[in-house]
């Protein structure tokens, strides 16, 4: 069993917590896990990409080779586009459709592509994917900060690798008790977004 996951977004979106949650889940299931992040200056609006590799055998490189990501979890549409070459043609993508414009796009000096164009580009690589508004859902539940957990919920329902109850046990260990209840709700809403 090998599972390669790419999680891409913008600094501050909780990308890292998502990758740690998945890694802990895989560890709990007895799998080997290796990951890496390219963070740059993540706190200041830069791109952040986490690579996660799960296997029942040895894992060597910490980066996911091009064309081998079984799941591409895009926290932001343009960031998903940026890492499209990682996606396996048989792989699944889940995209949070809420845009985080770049500084130059904000200034009208660069063009943020239409969401339809981005989705079409993803569909050109793989026909299995979902576009959800995780950020909007998170705000409804009390804060955009939970976007990552909504997306984890979505992720947990697109692959047989993930068991809902066991994943929740992992979240209970890594999320502060003060905000756990809201986050578990966010997780369920993420699952519901995929089901609908």
């Amino acid at each position: 069993m090998n599972l390669n996951i790419i999680i891409c977004g913008v600094g501050g979106q909780g990308n890292l917590l998502a990758s740690v949650a998945i890694a802990n889940y895989a560890m709990k299931k007895g799998f080997n896990v290796v990951g890496t992040e390219t963070i740059g200056a993540a706190q200041r609006g830069g791109s952040v990409v986490s690579h996660l590799r799960i296997s029942d055998g040895p894992i060597y490189a910490s980066t996911v080779p091009d064309g081998t990501a079984d799941i591409l979890l895009g926290f932001e549409p343009v960031e998903a586009l940026r890492h499209i070459k990682k996606l396996n043609p048989e792989g699944i993508y889940i995209i949070n459709v809420e845009k985080v414009p770049t500084v130059l796009c904000n200034m009208g000096l660069d063009q943020y592509p239409d969401l339809e164009q981005i989705m079409a580009a993803l569909q050109d690589v793989s026909s299995h994917g979902y576009a959800i508004n995780a950020a909007e859902k998170a705000r409804e539940l009390g804060g955009a900060i939970m976007t990552n957990v909504v997306l984890l919920g979505a992720l947990s329902s697109v692959s047989d690798f993930f068991d809902r109850d066991e994943f929740i046990e992992v979240l209970k260990k890594i999320i502060s008790p003060k905000v756990l209840e809201k986050n578990l709700k966010a997780f369920e809403e993420g699952r519901a977004l995929i089901a609908s």
């Binding site: 200041r44 830069g46 064309g67 343009v78 499209i84 660069d110 943020y112 164009q117 981005i118 690589v125």
Partner: peptide, 19 residues
């Protein structure tokens, strides 16, 4: 080379800025 076809559109770059 097992070319992964490049998308037709390019992703705008993110330059670093202050918070």
């Amino acid at each position: 080379k097992t070319a992964v076809s490049a998308p037709q559109i390019s992703a705008p770059v993110r330059t670093r800025t202050q918070c």
